[in-house]
Structures are given as structure tokens and as C-alpha cells.
């Protein structure tokens, strides 16, 4: 997973009202922005979470990945807390800029499981397009 790759790779992030598809800039979205087909030309899309409890960015990510076929880097920024990352990953985020003061547990530590607390999930997601019932034989 791209968690180690905590951005700052010099790419400019431009808010939607100033962004031009041909600019080569990354696109910075607010969770309330409406997704559009032209966004997929951005090398990076960052979605800014105003609060870690605000789930709009999760739906926006799913739409970008599944409806518009965005395959570039999808970065969560703003109020990104470690405990929400397992949801974000399943919605298609692959890069995370943690909120100020937040840090990830060291790899291999006991609390490392915060990032992936479950070995599998019931429902389909961006990461796993088939629900569990279709992938594994469910036996008692």
C-alpha cells in the first residue's frame, strides 16, 4: 500500500474552479464537489476531508473510481485520521496525508492493525469488486 509514499512529490494541487485539464496539475476537490468525466485527466486527485466524520469524500472517491474510471493517485487530505483509513482504502484512496498531529503506528507494531483491522469484508468495494458471498463458499 502507498502509505509510506506520503506525497509532497512536488506536484501542484489546484482547486476545481482554477483547474484546467491540460495543465498537468493535480486536482484538489472539496467533498461537496460534483465529479466530472474530465477529472480523470488529472495525474492526482486530492479530496479534502473537513472532518474525519464527514463521509461525503468516501462517496466522491467511489464515484471517481467506479463511475468515471479514474486510475491515477487518489489522495485523502485534511482531517485524515488513522482509524478511518481502512474505509478510505476500500473507497479507492491510495494515498493519505494525515491530519496535523496524527501519525501512523510503526509498521509491524501491535496497533498496525488500525490500518487493516479486518482480513475480509462482507460487501463489494472498490478494492474488492465482488461481495464475500460470491468469492468464498460460506460454510458453518
Amino acid at each position: 500500500m502507498a502509505l509510506s509514499n506520503r506525497i509532497q512529490n512536488g506536484l501542484r494541487l489546484t482547486p476545481l474552479d482554477e483547474w484546467m485539464p491540460e495543465s498537468g496539475d493535480g486536482l484538489l476537490l472539496d467533498v461537496a464537489d460534483e465529479p466530472e468525466a474530465r477529472f480523470i485527466r488529472a495525474p492526482v486527485i486530492a479530496i479534502r476531508f473537513p472532518a474525519f466524520t464527514d463521509g461525503r469524500g468516501l462517496s466522491l472517491a467511489v464515484l471517481l473510481r467506479t463511475r468515471f474510471g479514474f486510475e491515477g493517485e487518489l489522495r485523502a487530505i485534511g482531517e485524515v485520521h488513522p482509524d478511518i483509513i481502512h474505509y478510505m482504502r476500500r473507497c479507492g484512496f491510495d494515498n493519505f496525508q494525515l491530519a496535523e498531529g496524527k501519525c501512523l503506528p510503526p509498521a509491524g507494531s501491535k496497533t498496525d492493525s488500525i490500518l487493516a483491522p479486518y482480513s475480509d469484508y462482507y460487501q463489494a468495494s472498490v478494492l474488492q469488486p465482488e461481495p464475500a458471498s460470491r468469492r468464498i463458499r460460506r460454510v458453518a
Binding site: 466524520t53 463521509g55 468516501l58 469484508y121 462482507y122 460487501q123 468495494s125 458471498s133
Partner: peptide, 13 residues
């Protein structure tokens, strides 16, 4: 129940 358990998109409504 199964579909909504820890749903990636709908746990922060």
C-alpha cells in the same frame, strides 16, 4: 445486515 456491516462508504453518514 451483512451488506451494511462496516460498509466502506456508509459508516460516516
Amino acid at each position: 445486515r451483512q451488506w451494511s456491516t462496516s460498509h466502506p462508504e456508509f459508516d460516516w453518514l
